[in-house]
Amino acid sequence: MAKGFFTDSTLCIGCKACEVACKQWNRLPADGYALSGNSYDNTGWLSGTTWRHVQFVEQFDAGQARWLMNSDVCKHCVQAACLEVCPTGAIIRTEFDTVYIQPDVCNGCRDCIAACPFGVIETNPDGIAQKCTLCYDRLQNGLEPACAKSCPTESIQFGEVDELVARAQARVQTLRASANPAYKSAYLYGVPGDGYTEEIGGLNAFHLLLDTPDKYGLPERPKLGSRATVPSQLGGVLTGALLALGAAISFRNRGARHDRDGGAATTTTTTTREV
């Protein structure tokens, strides 16, 4: 049974309780006190030591202003690009259908960082790749993840993915039917048939959003790395074979032509024919 998050951005008030609860439970170090100047967002991005990130998107349009908030997190993709490329087997699919990086197995090659379409993974101070575990240890003990537990507005909801999707779809209907015009654009990012995440089979941690994915730093078409493996490797091998053929033909030459001063035109013609 897949467990996941439904993050309803319309309920987020930007309190960052999820960030703090995550750091506390997972004993993640602080990231310093830099003032980013970017709205109330001094967290910046998800990283090896930051597994929840509350985004503050300020929008000004024709005298109207609005503030979109959204608690970003690992999406625990149904088909995860990080898990797919991981050469050590450190990244596993757990019994809860979540994506978990075993810290004692990862050797810090960072291929998962290059593969993740969401920029979720980075290395921690120990040099290994880390990200949200969906509180694997809490789940194993029948508890809900720390962020969902701490969220005061239930913007972050934890549960069975099927139930969460049904609840989220009902929520979208409610929002769209409301009098507030800002809610007319409500939609789900990461559920089957959303038009965005089909190539990775959807997300076990999905979001309800009000603006297009790019406004929240989300990709329009997240992909799997393996889409390119066969075409690129095959192209490489065929090119290699072609070059090997060219070299072999060059090597068969018996050296009849020793005229090194024969001039460029002659040489070019000869070369083309021989190659």
Binding site: A81, V85, D111, A114, A115, C116, P117, P219, P222, K223, G225, S226, R227, A228, T229, P231, S232, Q233, G235, G236, V237, T239, G240, A241, A244
Partner: peptide
């Protein structure tokens, strides 16, 4: 031949700009 080309496939098989 495989070794000399897999490094390109490695960069292609990502979600990074240019490489992917």
């Amino acid at each position: 031949i495989f070794f000399g080309s897999y490094t390109g496939a490695l960069l292609n098989a990502t979600n990074q700009r240019v490489w992917g």
